[in-house]
Design a protein around this nucleic acid. Structure first.
Lengths: 194, 194
DNA sequence: CCTACCGATCGGTAGG
DNA sequence: CCTACCGATCGGTAGG
C-alpha cells in the first residue's frame, strides 16, 4: 500500500488525509474513510492527531510556508522583473510538484479552516499574492511590461494558472515541473502570439 | 431579503442554494441552512425539489449549456484564430458574470455529482475545453501563434484564469465583464511584455 | 408549507 | 490501537 519511508505515524496520517481530502473534499471526507485507508479504526486516529481540522491546518500552513520560503530566494536577486517573475513561477510550480495532494488541499479546502486560522491563512495568501504583484509593478515601472495592464487581473491570471495546476498535472504524461514553469512563464510574459 | 423577480419558487430555491453552495461548499451546506435562508422549514424544501443533488445538477448542467451555446456563436465565424479566442474568452466571461454564484458552483462543486451525472458533466467539460484547444491549434497551424507552445498548458492556463474569476471578481470594483475579457485575452495572446 | 419523525452517519471520548 | 459508545446533525419521508 503506502510506503512507510521515514515518516512518523502522524505524518503518514496527514499524507493519506491529503489524498483523501483532495479526492472527496474536506467536508465530504470522513474520519472513518481516513481510518480505513490507514487500516485502523476511526477512534485510533486520535492517538496521532487532535482533530480532523488539525490535519487541515497542518496541510494548509505547511504548504504556505513552503511557498513563502521559495519566493524569498527570488525577490532579492538583482535581476530584471521578467526574470524574477519567471523564476518565481518556476519555484512555485516546483513546490507544488513536490506534493500535489497537499497543494490541491491548500488551494481548494482552506475555506474549511475555522477562525482564527482562516483569517490568518487568508492574510498569508494575500501577502504572497502581493509580492508577485510587486514584481509585476516593478516590471511596468521599469518599462519591461506594458503600462496599460490591469495589474490585479494579471496577478490573478497568474495565480489561477498556478493554483489550478494540481488538478490536471500528471507526473507521468506532463513535462517536468521546471519545464512546465518555463513554458507557463513564457505564455504569460510573451503571449501566444507569433 | 431576496427579490422575487419573476422566479418560480423552485428557481428561488436554486438561486439561494447557489449562493449557499458557493459560500460553504456543497457538502458542508445543509438543507436546514438552505431552508433557513428561505424562511421555511427544511422539510418544506421537498415540495419544490426532489433532493439536494437535484439542485446541484440544475446548477451544473444549466451553466454548462450556457457556456456551450455562447461558444457555438463564435466557432463558425470567418475570423482569425486570435479573434475567435478573444471573442470566446469574452463570451465565457459574460456568461459567468450573469450568474457568479452558479459559476462558482459549476467550477468548484461539480465533483459532488453522483454517477452517471458526474461522468456526463466531465464529458461536457472536456468537450468544451477541446473546442478552445482547436482554436489554439488553428492559430498555431495558421502561423498566428507560436509553433512551440505546449497546447495543453495553453488551454489549461486559459481555463484556470476563466474559472477562477468568480472567486475574486466583484461587480462593484472590477471592470465590466466585456472589458475584463478583452484584457484577459490581451494578456494571453500578447503577453505582459512591452 | 408544517409537525413529527426516521435511519444513517458524523467527529470525537472513555477506558483499557 | 481497540471496543463501546455519545450527542449532534444529516438528507429525506409520512401525513396532513
Amino acid at each position: 500500500m503506502d510506503e512507510n519511508l521515514n515518516l512518523t505515524k502522524k505524518e503518514q496520517v496527514i499524507r493519506v488525509a491529503a489524498n483523501l481530502f483532495r479526492e472527496k473534499g474536506y467536508a465530504a471526507a470522513s474520519m472513518r474513510d481516513l481510518a480505513q485507508k490507514l487500516g485502523i479504526e476511526a477512534a485510533s486516529l486520535y492517538s496521532h492527531i487532535k482533530s480532523k481540522e488539525e490535519i487541515l491546518q497542518s496541510l494548509c500552513f505547511d504548504m504556505a510556508a513552503e511557498f513563502r520560503k521559495a519566493l524569498e530566494n527570488v525577490e532579492n536577486q538583482k535581476i530584471s522583473a521578467s526574470e524574477k517573475l519567471r523564476i518565481g513561477i518556476i519555484e512555485h510550480i516546483n513546490v507544488m510538484a513536490k506534493d500535489l495532494p497537499s497543494s490541491a488541499v491548500f488551494m481548494n479546502e482552506h475555506r474549511h479552516l475555522s477562525r482564527p486560522f482562516l483569517n490568518e491563512f487568508l492574510l498569508l495568501q494575500i501577502n504572497y499574492i502581493n509580492r508577485f504583484k510587486k514584481i509585476i509593478e516593478e516590471g511596468i515601472s521599469k518599462g519591461e511590461f506594458k503600462m496599460n495592464i490591469d495589474k490585479k487581473l494579471a496577478v490573478m491570471t497568474l495565480f489561477s494558472s498556478l493554483n489550478w495546476m494540481p488538478l490536471w498535472y500528471d507526473d507521468k504524461t506532463n513535462a517536468v515541473p521546471t519545464d512546465l514553469g518555463e513554458q507557463l512563464a513564457d505564455i504569460l510574459i510573451n503571449g501566444l502570439k507569433q
